[in-house]
Write a protein that binds this DNA or RNA. Structure first.
Length: 826
RNA sequence: GCGGGCGUGGCGGAAAGGCAGACGCGCUGGACUUAGGAUCCAGUGGGGAAUACCCGUGCGAGUUCAACUCUCGCCGCCCGCACCA
């Protein structure tokens, strides 16, 4: 009798759906638990990364449910996005909506075949008007709060995707996060969200997230990039202009020997206009701007600067300081200029040496001096202020504070906290996204679409060409509209929203997916949120997770939700590798989940993926490993199926005291409960949980060989039932079938999780290891409750130990209760 | 350069200062069999005839009765950030 996974998996998937086994009521008296995995973009088919992500989530959801929690475990589709539109361009004819929906249908089918415990009634897709209506609505809330604004700025432009990108979507070496094309800068008017207003809270509230991996928190911290310092005003000599510089080292201000502006700095034009430097400087600015973002910001790029001919005045020292421009100064950071302090900044030091600017020492290391002539590197540590007039003698932070308050007193500057974080650019020059609900009227200006007029529907008939202009702009019926304010002729905004906006609030929608009077029912979000366990790839450490945190804080401030953070616990799963590399079409090392499910079944696929590595680590795919898991399931089947009748007829309670093999069997059963419960419940170590179940199976195989007369039926029954229940979160179909054939009615997934009997796992006898000088030399059997003193006695008495010690002097004996005795001899 | 992670048999991985290698894969042998690429049982870090003994968790020091585990210094691989003023 072979385990027929095709029949069994289909049978239970059908029955679960019919019985609504995974449908979750909105409320319950039981403690609630929201288990969520990052919903997928419907790219076509599931890949192994999805299977891993969702298998992990399913174990957690099922385990929590069996432990008495009321578990929300939903699934949906992050369905706006470029690939749909690119497919339309490439294959002609196919509309993004149709392409997307057919992908969703295929992937939903795959998810169902994998047997995940989703409440499918809550499914939604972000490209449906019912959903994006509320994405638009949320945009309006941000707009009304002054958190959405349009401005002209030098923005990241991906020539391949033919759209702008947010800073977070430009990754290492300055390439597009999606297509890895080198990103360019373009001067465009774009919509932004003021995420910078929330920089401090986004940083500080990371402390509220002990359940997040340290790594992710550090990445967010670095991205936000908080620094403390001061702004200092340097008046331009012979003019009313002022150069405001940001520095983290106001204590070095007396050491400034030049000032550098970013080439794009607005003051540059003014400084050079009509001077003999004009031509030379313009040439230089053009040269710098021609450089790509990568070359521009690479450490390797040679630092180049040019004197503008103008000077400014150091307000503290009164010194006249030359103003230059240089390629390494970024307009976007701080105030777009840098004060050059060669003695105390390595970069400035090298720059000054190259161009011959003086090096002026204003900080001395404690107990030592510095000589500019012989210095080989800048002194960047803290130290004692010198050559700094009234501030001489102040040390480190003290000096910084003194200089800053003096500046404030004189009105020459102020203390300032600076962030690396930039505002979130959300407009995209593409079609397949949520429309930005804004109308431009010649008379009334920028007018938000009234909430009652939402959703602004995406028109279906549109030409898709990656021209760099928004496709909606070519669609007169869409563009031309009446001004909501004056009724006159007006034009709609034709850019759409970044899809990260859709995924920044979807986890609220799952609580009330059909809600039509608002984005969600607040009673339900108050009940379920925050998400107790969120699971997904680390590639979203900054992007999605930072945006979602930002949204949550805005929504909280708007009084729309009651939680300050969206995700209490975060699990970032590792990648699925094959042949030492991430699975990818270009590498040709892709294993298709469909093929695995067809050949071995969903349970085997899930079991392998959970068994092969702990969830946070990368997983190395192994066809033989899959084979092994398949064999294990068959081994379980061959064990349990023939015992089904025995189990069925056995008494449910173990009566009387047990001895010998029966006691051993029961111990193995309860030990497995303990191990699996701890491994899933507190560590997410599914691999070791599964190995514990395998050990229980191995013990059962031995127990099966015991003559029937010597076996205790109740012990066998308990062992088999426990085995099935422990398997249920990992291999839900097989467990359900085994549960049924062993005579149970009702789903195994509705069974309470077993607890172990501490008495049952107590050993009668333990093996005590005897070490001599830390090396294992003997093992002795001792009664379970043996005291350290008795252990010591027993070990020393042992003949073999005596012999090995010989005549040597015993220095020390260390008994470790229940484990070992270490005898130290000389 | 800065920050984080990892380094254990032929392979995936166990071991939360206390018997290194659980569990699985692979391999070897046996049983069953017309057959076995199924199944069951046993063995399996290296050296060694050995249940003796020695060696062994990237390398080198240290702490400890005891170190894969803690500390310090290197080496290698991976990830993130990087002219941030």
């Amino acid at each position: 009798m072979k385990y027929d996974f095709r029949r069994v998996e289909a049978k239970w998937q059908k029955r679960w759906a019919e019985e609504g086994l995974y449908e979750v009521p909105d409320f319950s008296d039981r403690p609630h638990y929201y288990c969520l995995e990052m919903f997928p973009y419907p790219s076509g088919k599931l890949h192994m990364g999805h299977v891993r992500n969702y298998s992990i989530g399913d174990v957690v959801a099922r385990f929590k449910a069996m432990n008495g929690f009321h578990v929300l475990h939903p699934m949906g589709w992050d369905s706006f996005g470029l690939p749909a539109e690119n497919a339309a361009i490439k294959h002609g004819g196919v509309h993004p909506a149709d392409w997307t929906n057919s992908n969703i249908n295929a992937m939903r089918e795959q998810l169902k075949q994998l047997g995940f415990s989703y409440d499918w009634r809550r499914e939604f897709s972000t490209c449906e008007p019912d959903y994006y209506r509320w994405t638009e609505w949320l945009f309006l809330q941000l707009f009304h709060k002054g958190l959405a604004y349009k401005k002209k700025a030098a923005v990241n432009w991906c020539p391949s995707c033919a759209t702008v990108l947010a800073n977070e979507q430009v990754i290492k070496e300055g390439v597009c996060e999606r297509c890895k094309t080198v990103v360019e800068k373009r001067e465009l008017a774009q919509w932004f969200f003021k995420i910078t207003d929330y920089a401090e809270r986004l940083l500080k509230d990371l402390e509220l997230l002990p359940g997040w991996p340290e790594k992710v928190k550090i990445m967010q911290e670095n991205w936000i990039g908080r620094s403390e310092g001061a702004e200092i005003n340097f008046p331009v000599a012979g003019s009313d202009d002022i150069i405001t510089v940001y520095t983290t080292r106001p204590d070095t201000v007396f050491g400034v020997t030049y000032m550098v502006l970013a080439p794009e700095h607005p003051l540059v034009e003014k400084l050079i206009a009509g001077t003999d430097k004009e031509k030379e400087i313009r040439e230089f600015v053009r040269k710098v701007q021609r450089l790509s973002e990568i070359a521009r910001t690479s450490v390797e790029t040679e630092k180049e600067g040019l004197f503008t001919g103008a000077y400014c005045i150091n307000p503290l020292s009164g010194e006249k300081v030359p103003i230059l421009i240089a390629n390494y100064v970024l307009l976007e950071y701080g105030t777009g200029c840098v004060m050059g302090v060669p003695a105390h900044d390595q970069r400035d030091f090298e720059f000054a040496r190259k161009y011959g600017y003086p090096i002026k020492v204003v900080i001395h290391p404690p107990g030592a001096g510095l000589d500019p002539a012989t210095m080989e590197a800048a002194y960047e540590e803290e130290g004692i202020m010198v050559n700094s007039g009234r501030f001489d003698g102040l040390y480190g932070r003290e000096g910084i504070r003194a200089v800053t308050s003096y500046l404030e007193e004189k009105g020459w500057g102020r203390s300032r906290v600076n962030y690396r974080l930039r505002d979130w650019l959300i407009s995209r020059q593409r079609y397949w996204g949520a429309p930005i609900p804004i109308v431009y009227c010649d008379k009334c200006g920028t007018v938000p679409v009234p909430e009652d007029d939402l959703p602004v529907l995406l028109p279906r008939a549109v030409k898709f060409k990656p021209t760099g202009r928004s496709p909606l702009a070519e669609c007169p019926d869409y563009v031309n509209t009446a001004c909501p304010s004056c009724g006159g002729k007006a034009r709609r905004e034709t850019d759409t929203m970044d899809t990260f906006m859709c995924s920044s609030w979807y986890y609220y929608r799952f609580t009330s997916p059909g809600e039509s009077s608002g984005p969600w029912d607040q009673a339900k979000t108050d009940y379920w949120l925050p998400v107790d366990q969120y699971i997904g790839g680390v590639e979203h450490a900054i992007l999605h997770l930072l945006y979602s945190r930002f949204f949550t804080k805005v929504l909280y401030d708007l009084g729309l939700i009651s939680n300050q953070e969206p995700f209490t616990n975060l699990l970032t799963q590792g990648m699925v590798l094959k042949d030492g590399a991430k699975m990818s079409k270009s590498k040709g090392n892709v294993v298709s989940p469909e093929d695995i499910v067809a050949a071995y079944g969903a349970d085997t696929a899930r079991l392998f993926i959970l068994f092969a590595a702990p969830p946070e680590r990368d997983l190395k795919w192994s066809d033989q490993g899959v084979e092994g898991c398949y064999r294990f399931l068959n081994r379980v089947w061959r064990l349990v199926a023939p015992l089904a009748d025995v189990v069925r007829q056995a008494p449910t309670a173990v009566s009387g005291s047990l001895a010998g093999v029966n006691r051993e069997m029961r111990r193995a059963t309860h030990f497995a409960i303990k191990k699996v419960t701890e491994d899933i419940g507190s560590r997410f170590n599914f691999n070791t949980a599964i190995s514990a179940v395998m050990e229980l199976v191995n013990t059962l195989y031995q127990y099966r060989e015991v003559p029937e007369a010597d076996r205790e039926p109740a012990v066998l029954r308990e062992a088999v039932e426990t085995l099935i229940i422990l398997l249920a979160p990992f291999v839900p179909h097989a467990a359900e079938e085994l549960w049924e054939i062993t005579g149970h009615t009702g789903s195994v997934h509705r069974q309470p999780w077993p607890s172990y009997d501490p008495q049952a796992i107590v050993e009668d006898e333990i093996t005590v290891v005897v070490q001599i000088n830390g090396r294992v030399r003997d093992r002795i059997l001792a009664p379970a409750g043996v005291s350290p003193g008795e252990m010591r006695e027993m070990a020393l008495k042992e003949e073999r130990v005596q012999k090995l010690i010989g005549g040597r002097e015993i220095v020390k004996v260390i008994p470790v209760p229940g484990k070992l005795v270490n005898i130290v001899v000389k």
